[in-house]
Every structure is written in C-alpha cells, then in structure tokens.
C-alpha cells in the first residue's frame, strides 16, 4: 500500500473537469511520466499558479463533483507522477473516483462543512492520513481531525496496489 498524506493543495471550485486536469491533446503520450509537465494546465483559479503550487503538493483538497467529464485515467496518472497520492472532496465523478482506487490511490469524501473547515485552516496545511482507522488530521494555522469512511472493497484495492493486481489474484 502507498503512503497517504503530506502537503495540501487547495482547488476552490466545484466541477473541476478532466480536461482541466489534463487536456486531451496530451492523450497521445504513451507513458505516464510524459504527462507530468501538463498537470492542471487549463485550470484557471484566482491566485493559483500550477508550477509553484503543484511542486510540493501531495494531497488535493477540492469541492464537489471533482473529475467530471472524460473517463481518461490520465487525470489520475498525472497526479501520481506529480507525487499527489490523495484527493479529498465533497464528491467525485464516478469514473474518476474508481480510477483513483484502481491505481491504488485514495479519494476521500467529506461533508461540505468539513471541507469548508479545511479550506479555512490557513497556512501551509499538512495531512496525516490513517487508512486503517479511517481518520485524518490536517495541520495548518490550526489543527483538525476528521473521520472518513471507505468501503471494504476500496480498502482491498489500496492494499493490493490497485484493481489489476486484485483482479489477477481473484478472477
């Protein structure tokens, strides 16, 4: 299982789509690593500078319906090759969410109130995430802890390192 947690990157908008995470014109690349420079290239948010903000980030915190649009798993791979291991949001598009766990990566859903709290922490926010006990701690100018829930199958995928490894054993 991967290690989850680290420095937060806040993306403050609903409905951030897969075209914004990785534009289609880069889908002609045949290696995951080649996608690295293009992460979030078309995402326009006030005060957001991709190059500076992505460099130290490990955990993306966002709002509702993250990853909507295309089925492209490139949206997960481009995070993976940029050392993002977790996305925390109010909700996810189905395919994006499934792609995360299929790659052994973590997608955590929290209530709107909890997400609001995370956005208001201030300072450099660092996450510690305990998958086994389904709890997370975020430390910025303040410190908060939340519990979250994962179903047992999603946990199994994290432990197996993704759906291919899991399915190859079971089917």
């Amino acid at each position: 299982m991967k290690t989850f947690g680290g420095q937060a990157l806040f993306l403050d908008r609903n409905d951030i789509n897969t075209d914004e995470i990785i534009p289609a014109k880069y889908l002609t690349e045949n290696s995951k690593l080649a996608l690295k420079p293009y992460v979030l290239e078309d995402l326009k948010l006030p005060g957001f500078n991709v190059q500076e903000d992505i460099a130290r980030a490990n955990v993306v915190v966002t709002r509702a319906n993250f990853g909507c649009g295309s089925s492209r798993e490139h949206a997960v791979w481009v995070f993976e090759v940029n050392n993002i291991n977790t996305v925390i949001g109010e909700s996810f598009a189905r395919i994006f969410r499934q792609n995360m766990f299929n790659c052994g990566m973590l997608a955590i859903e929290l209530s709107k109130e909890d997400i609001d709290t995370l956005f208001q922490l201030g300072g450099d926010v660092i996450f510690s995430i305990d998958v086994e006990n389904e709890t997370l701690t975020a430390k910025g100018n303040k410190e908060v802890s939340f519990s979250f829930s994962l179903n047992s199958f999603d946990k199994d995928l994290l432990v197996a390192g993704g759906w291919l490894a899991y399915a190859d054993q079971k089917f």
Partner: peptide, 19 residues
C-alpha cells in the same frame, strides 16, 4: 465508460466492478 485500468482488466479477465 471506464478508465484504462478497468479496460485492462476487462481485456484480460472479462470482468469489471461497479457499485
């Protein structure tokens, strides 16, 4: 619609997981 890992398992095993 599914991602590439689901597709890969589909190609190899003929199965896919859904909620």
């Amino acid at each position: 619609g599914v991602g590439t890992t689901d597709l890969e398992v589909g190609i190899l095993k003929g199965v896919c997981s859904f909620r």
